[in-house]
Structure formats: structure tokens, C-alpha cells
Design a protein around this nucleic acid. Structure first.
Length: 779
RNA sequence: GCGGGCGUGGCGGAACUGGUAGACGCAACGGACUUAAAAUCCGUAGGGGGGCGACCCCCGUGCCGGUUCGAUUCCGGCCGCCCGCACCA
């Protein structure tokens, strides 16, 4: 149970309940629901991330990472909610405002704990290539998120005085098109200049206030301030460039400073146009004349030949990049560099319902790890969530401890770990849930996880963190694997129609009656009859009240019909629009299956001579086993259930009255297979059927049926016969019939023959057991 | 802007590596059973046209074009929708 986090704190704040009691109550409820669904879970391995037995071990490995410099503290910019007095995750900032307080979020410098995920950036990128059972989409998203780029880190020396400014660029080929340098507002050099320049100081403040929302960024005007400082061009000391501060330069990417090449970068171009800086093209697109080529409102970012660029002239873009890097390195002006978009993972949260960071602040000894014998560092029993801010920091006694080093008065760290830390290693704990060590010896036997299942929303959060933590723990000698999840399946979201009253109020589906009038559907309030507006299907959420619990269906139709319905409705990787239309079909299937087992005496399988009906049934049985098995392997549960529908249809239409011994045997085989095939979908029904057949024990632990390949394929194939690509008839040919045999059958066919009158067959295409095609031309 | 995906009947959706498009289910319609209804069972069904009839023909997987004996599937260009990232130098 991923049990720490905001929902419990919110409930505590809003209703005054204890977050622990609230969480454990929800777990009890969910456990009952899962059991009711008949899921096959090993409850002996159950734990919650809020158990001290779990988070204490998490604290243990956190301290190991700290000792290895994989965890560290630094000052960083965070989203600060001034009303709730807490740091917010990026996801909790909506349009620049705190999601609960609605207050404008400030960017604030705080000293925070970080995990050094960037040390593994390259390995995490390379590792993606080995994940051949992961969806491409997730791999691409992680690749983009890690964002590896190669370029040049380059120094521009000050025109006056010592030193210079470091700039990162991926386009060193365009260096001769430079017309300015631009610093981020948070760049230290900008800060130092501001001390003597009030106007600059004001500009920097304005920049920091700028919204962080997508819309704000989209529409944000390029703003700049000329600091008056000048730097020398690294390839031409006589060429001086102005140093600006610009609001579009980010401090936490590259070096926080860029050189602007307006002709070949759209942002630089907008900036240059606004402040009337030079726009000098240095990449000539193919087919353009160097004398007439001009850059208008669109920067040219495509390929071309370098010109106006001294020693780079005549080179193509890629060659010019290499040449520029070589020259810069030779002149000791810069080095080729690899830069990642990925940042270190800030894990400090000013929250009370999370895993305490097991560190003690001592005024004499500095940061001291909590001694191992004191782990787990437990949360206090009583926490007051009624006020904004961190209840741990406010707690009267909890944080006051003696320093483990000097014994003097000291304070505990009151930040807790991001809950994504909790979920980044639980799979390893599952593998050996009662081990004394955080990760027990059995983990090596079980891991990696064969098949992981989760929503796409975790593509770059949980799934990246878990891959990183796995490697970090591996390097601590705690794990032997590189990748935690060998196979990944991303299931879709469940959506539901939304309903609103005329006044805009949302109405929950339970309270809605749908009136079907021919093709039109109308929604009415089930009690008052008030007409409602039917809205789009959206992800189920409390705010839109479009949530439906499967338990409601289970109350009417039972768990097995509900499970069959949910699985048969649509493929699991797709979003589904929840509707109960169709659940009747699953209900019928359950009843039909049971009728097959219940309606007639169970007769033992006992051989019998050949009989066409029996053979047909055996073929249907083995064909179904094959089809269902393959569909399950491919996660096509809807197709698997469709095959079961067909199979049950076959059973029903095969008369049991007056059956030959062979048919009785075939039927017994069919029912045996059916019970096993149905078990994953409708376990309770399957057990009942299994017992009805007189078996001992559970079908749940019985083996999966095995098909006979000879029986799974039809021995007679229906081959469509095409003439010039259009279907003109069909023949029945024995399986594996040769081209000549098929030609014989076509020639002899009374329907196809006449259609070949007056034409000449110039080509005969035969795909064995599939199709025949006659290509003709006029005779 | 960049990256990825999707588009098939009234609906959810099938169709293996190019080989009978619409499996299976829902809804619908017709029939049987019933005093009646529900339930259940049987049957019909992409669109259009022809034939008394068993049947036959044409069109059809967002649109236009291409490759191929054959395209829902491959290629090019549009249109529409969805998701992710985003001032990343």
C-alpha cells in the first residue's frame, strides 16, 4: 500500500482525523474490495509504506546513499506556497498558483535534499535499449526527459578585467553569427552586477515573478537588460559582444548563460528584433544565394553550408560543429560537453505524513546521520495538521534530540521524503518482505519483475525513479540487477460520461436515468426527472462526480460477470468509457457456462470410436485452447473472452441427447478445458464447475490446458478464390494442399469455372491454407 | 513549437508477419414460449442495386494519391482527434 502522502494530510486538515487512522481505515476497505474481486494475491507479503518496518529500512538505505554522495543537500529553487507555507511539487502548481491555497506560487531558495539521479543519466538512457518489453512510447518519453545533448562549453573573456563567462551551446557552428550574450536572471554574475545597478536589480526581481505556467511561458514577451559589460568573441579578440540579462534564459540548464545567434535560433531572433541587435546569417540553406539570403521572422535552423565564418566557411553544419569544438579546445577556450535536461531529484518535503529523513542537525557537529540502532526514526503518534506548514517542525518535542556525536542538544531534520521514494523500491521489499535487511536474499531470486503494470502517467516519474534507485542500490551492493521491470504494460484510464444540471452542478451517474429514444439518448435526474446535459467522457474524478464503483455492478451481477464484462469490453491498454451497457452479455455467459456443467449428468471420459461430431468438438476445444492462450499472452483479454463465447456457443448447439461414447468423451474433454480456461476471468464460477466435474482441489492451482497442434488447426481449409483480386468464390481444400491440388479443385469448381470464360489465366497465386488468386487478361 | 499515437457498422471493438473486413458482445428488428410481460431460446443484420428464387453485382476501414496479383495493414500528402514535453540554448 502506497500509503504516505497528501490525501491523508488533506483529510486530516479538513476533517480533523488522524492521518494514520484514516489511512489504515482506507487500507482495510480496499483490502476487502480486492478480496471480493477474487484477485490472487499473496497476502503474507502485505505491507504499507507507512509501516515503520518499511520506512525504517528506507531510512537505512537513504543513509547509505548519503555516505556515498548519492544523496546530498544543496540550496535549490523550489515552488513555495506562501499561504500553506510549504514546498509544492511541480504537479501541485496549477497555472502558477497553489492547488489548495490558490495563492501565487513564489520561487524560493531553500536548502533541500537531493538524490543524484544525474550521475546515472547516461546509464538510464542506455538501459532503455535493453527494455524490449516496454512500450516504445514510455521509452521515448524517458529518453526525452533525460534529454541528452552534445555541444560545447565555451568561455567568453571579459573585455575589461579578469575572467569571463561560461556559455553552453549545441550550435558552435554558428558562433560567427553571435550578436550578444544573455544570462539567466538567477545567474550569479547578474546578481553581483545588480548590487551596483538598481535598475538591473529591479529587472531581476521582475523576472523571478514571471509566471511558471505553460500559458504564461507561451505568451511571455522576451525581455532583456543590457548590463553594459562587454566580452570578447573567442575566435576574434577584437570583436566585442554585449552581455544582457534575459528572462528566457534558464539558470538550471547548461551554464545559465547563452550566446545569441539570432539568424539561427527563433528565441534569439525575437530578442534581437526587439532590442535591435544584429542578425547575421552564417548557415546558407541549399539553393540560396549568399548575396541575397536574408532571415525574416523565421530563424533558419535547418541544414546548410557555413559562410561569413572565417575558418568554418564552406563546411556543412555537422563538420563545422566539430571544427569549432576542436578550435575552442585547442585555444583553451572551451571543451566539448554533454548536457542533460535531467536534474537531480529534490526529495525534501515539508510534510508531516511521510518518511522522516533520518538526519540530525547539530550546531557543533553539523549534519549527523541518525545512528543505525535508532532506526526507524518514527513519526510521532500525535501530529497537528490543523495549521498550515509542517506539523513535524511544529511538534513540541519530536525534533529535540541529543547529538549522536557530541551528546549536545540537536534537532532532527523535519523534512520528509517525497512519496515517490517510497514507491521506488517496494518491489524489492515484496520479494523478501520479512527480511532483516532492507532487501533480503530472496530478492535476487525473484527480480527483476517479469511483468509490471501501471498507468502511462508514471512514464517519467515513478518508472524513472525506480530505475534510478535500483541502480543506486545495486552500487551499494544491495541488489544485483540493473533494471527493475523486465516487461511493462500500460493500461488505459477509465472514463465516464459527465452530467450537469442546467445550473452547471455536476451529477453523479448513480442519480441519472438515461432515456433511449431511438438513436437519441437523453439524461434525466432519476428522482426529479429534470433534464440534464450529457458531457464528454472524462477520467473519473471526484470533482466531476463521474465515478462509478465496480462494486455496484457486482451487487447486481456478481463478481465473475463483472470481471468478465470489464475484461471483454475493450483492450486493456486503451482508455475505456465506462458504461454498464453490455454487462448483461457477461451475465448471460456466466449462466450459459454453468448450464453446460449443471444441466446434464457428468459422464466420465472413456474413449469411443470415431464420430464426426466428436471430432468436431475436439477440434473446437483445442482450437479454443490455442486461441485463448495466445490472446492471454498478448494481453488481448477481450479477444480471449470472445473465443470463450464462441466455444460455449459450440457446446450449446452440440446435442447431448443420444450422444455416442466418442462424443461423450469429447464433451468431457471440452468441459475440463472450459473450466480451466475460464478460471483467470471468472474464478468463482470456474471452481464451481471444476468441483461439478468431480475434481479434487482447486482449478486455480490446476495446470493450464495444453492443446494438440494437430487438432487446433482445421484439417479442411476454406480458401477464398479471387479473380484479379476480387473474391469470386471459395473452395474447400485439405490443410496443406499444394498449389497443384488447389488448382485442380478450382478447375473442377462449378461456380468459378464459368467466370473464367473468355479470359486467360496468366498468373496463379497460391498462399497455402490462405487464399488463391487468379490474374487474368482477355483471351 | 518538438515528440508519440489514433481514425473500421447505431455502439464497444476483431482481423496473425499484406491474404474472405466487420469475429465476439451490446443495442435494434423478426419469430418461438407465455393470458401477458420479463427471462430464455431461434433467426436477421455495413451501404446500395438486381433476381420469383438458391443467389448475383457494385461501393465500403477519415480524405487524396502510390506500391502490389491483392492494402484496415506498407509509402507520400492532407484533414480531424488524443497524449506527453516545452523559452533546454
Amino acid at each position: 500500500w502506497d500509503a504516505f502522502g497528501l490525501p491523508a494530510e488533506n483529510a486530516a486538515a479538513e476533517r480533523g482525523v488522524d492521518p494514520r487512522a484514516w489511512t489504515l481505515g482506507n487500507i482495510d476497505f480496499m483490502r476487502d474490495e480486492l478480496k471480493r474481486l477474487g484477485l490472487a494475491l499473496d497476502w503474507s507479503r502485505e505491507f504499507a509504506t507507512c509501516d515503520p518496518e518499511y520506512y525504517g529500512r528506507q531510512q537505512a538505505w537513504f543513509l547509505k546513499l548519503w555516505a556515498s554522495d548519492l544523496a546530498y543537500r544543496k540550496e535549490g529553487l523550489v515552488n513555495w506556497d506562501p499561504v500553506d507555507m510549504t514546498v509544492l511539487a511541480n504537479e501541485q502548481v496549477i497555472d502558477g498558483r497553489g492547488w489548495r491555497s490558490d495563492a501565487p506560487v513564489e520561487r524560493k531558495k531553500l536548502t533541500q535534499w537531493f538524490l543524484r539521479i544525474t550521475r546515472y543519466a547516461d546509464e538510464l538512457l542506455e538501459g532503455l535499449k535493453t527494455l524490449d518489453r516496454w512500450p516504445d512510447k514510455v521509452r521515448i518519453m524517458q529518453e526525452n526527459w533525460i534529454g541528452r545533448s552534445t555541444g560545447l562549453e565555451l568561455r567568453f573573456d571579459f573585455a575589461h578585467g579578469e575572467g569571463g563567462l561560461e556559455v553552453y551551446t549545441t550550435r558552435p557552428d554558428t558562433l560567427f553569427g553571435a550578436s550578444f550574450l544573455a544570462l539567466a536572471a538567477d545567474h550569479p554574475f547578474a546578481g553581483s552586477l545588480a548590487a551596483g545597478d538598481p535598475a538591473l536589480a529591479k529587472f531581476l526581481t521582475d523576472c523571478r515573478r514571471g509566471g511558471t505556467s505553460e500559458a504564461a511561458i507561451e505568451s511571455a514577451e522576451k525581455l532583456g537588460y543590457d548590463t553594459g559589460v562587454r566580452v570578447r568573441h573567442p575566435f576574434d579578440p577584437d570583436w566585442l559582444l554585449p552581455v544582457w540579462v534575459a528572462n528566457f534564459v534558464l539558470m538550471d540548464y547548461g551554464t545559465g548563460a547563452i550566446f545569441g545567434c539570432p539568424a539561427h535560433d527563433q528565441r534569439d531572433l525575437e530578442f534581437a528584433r526587439k532590442y535591435r541587435l544584429p542578425v547575421k546569417p552564417v548557415v546558407l540553406p541549399a539553393g540560396e544565394d549568399p548575396k541575397t539570403f536574408q532571415v525574416g521572422n523565421e530563424a533558419w535552423t535547418g541544414p546548410g553550408r557555413i559562410y561569413n565564418s572565417a575558418f568554418l566557411n564552406g563546411l556543412e553544419v555537422e563538420a563545422a560543429k566539430a571544427a569549432a569544438v576542436a578550435r575552442a579546445e585547442g585555444a583553451n577556450q572551451g571543451t566539448g560537453a554533454v548536457v542533460y535536461r535531467l536534474r537531480d531529484w529534490g526529495v525534501s518535503r515539508q510534510r508531516g505524513w511521510g518518511c522522516p529523513i533520518p538526519v540530525i542537525h547539530c550546531s557543533k557537529c553539523g549534519l549527523v546521520p541518525a545512528p543505525e540502532r535508532d532506526l526507524p526514526v518514527r513519526l510521532p503518534e500525535e501530529l497537528d495538521f490543523s495549521l498550515p506548514g509542517n506539523p513535524l517542525a511544529r511538534h513540541p518535542t519530536w525534533k529535540h534530540v541529543a547529538c549522536p556525536e557530541c551528546g549536545g542538544p540537536a534537532e532532527r531534520e523535519t523534512d520528509t521524503l517525497d512519496t515517490f521514494v517510497d514507491s521506488s523500491w517496494y518491489f524489492a521489499r515484496f520479494a523478501d518482505p520479512h527480511a532483516e535487511a532492507p532487501i533480503g536474499p530472496a530478492a535476487d531470486r525473484w527480480l527483476p519483475v517479469d511483468q509490471y503494470i501501471g498507468g502511462i502517467e508514471h512514464a517519467v516519474l515513478h518508472l524513472l525513479y525506480a530505475r534510478f534507485v535500483t541502480r543506486a542500490l545495486r552500487d551499494q551492493g544491495m541488489l544485483k540487477i540493473d533494471e527493475p521491470f523486465a516487461g511493462l504494460f500500460t493500461q488505459g484510464m477509465v472514463t465516464h460520461e459527465t452530467y450537469r444540471r442546467q445550473n452547471g452542478e455536476w451529477v453523479e451517474p448513480k442519480a441519472v436515468r438515461i432515456a433511449q429514444e431511438g438513436a437519441t439518448r437523453r439524461a434525466l435526474d432519476a428522482t426529479t426527472g429534470e433534464p440534464l446535459v450529457i458531457g464528454d467522457a472524462e477520467k473519473m474524478s471526484k470533482s466531476k462526480r463521474n465515478v462509478v464503483a465496480p462494486a455496484d455492478i457486482a451487487d447486481t451481477y456478481g463478481i465473475d460477470a463483472t470481471r468478465l464484462f470489464v475484461l471483454s469490453d475493450s483492450p486493456p491498454d486503451r482508455d475505456v468509457q465506462w458504461t454498464t451497457a453490455g454487462v448483461e452479455g457477461a451475465w448471460r455467459l456466466v449462466n450459459r457456462i454453468w448450464a453446460e456443467f449443471d444441466s446434464q449428468p457428468v459422464r466420465p471420459a472413456s474413449g469411443g470410436s470415431e464420430d464426426p461430431a466428436a471430432t468436431a468438438m475436439r477440434r473446437a476445444t483445442h482450437h479454443t485452447i490455442k486461441a485463448v492462450t495466445e490472446a492471454l499472452d498478448g494481453f488481448r483479454f477481450n479477444s480471449a473472452i470472445a473465443r470463450i463465447y464462441e466455444f460455449v456457443g459450440t457446446l450449446r448447439t452440440t446435442p447431448a441427447e443420444g450422444a455416442t461414447p466418442a462424443l461423450v468423451t469429447a464433451r468431457a474433454e471440452a468441459l475440463d478445458a472450459l473450466a480451466r480456461l475460464v478460471a483467470p476471468f471468472a474464478p468463482h464460477l470456474a471452481e464451481q464447475c471444476w468441483a461439478r466435474l468431480g475434481n479434487e482441489g482447486l482449478v486455480a492451482v490446476a495446470s493450464w490446458p495444453v492443446y494438440d497442434p494437430a487438432l487446433a488447426e482445421d484439417n479442411v481449409k476454406v480458401l477464398p478464390v479471387q479473380i484479379d483480386g476480387k473474391r469470386r468464390g471459395e473452395i474447400r481444400a485439405p490443410a496443406g494442399a499444394t498449389k497443384d491440388e488447389v488448382w485442380e479443385l478450382i478447375s473442377a469448381d462449378s461456380e468459378i469455372g464459368p467466370k473464367l470464360q473468355g479470359v486467360k489465366v496468366v498468373r496463379f497465386i497460391h498462399v497455402p491454407d490462405r487464399i488463391a488468386n487468379l490474374v487474368t487478361e482477355p483471351a
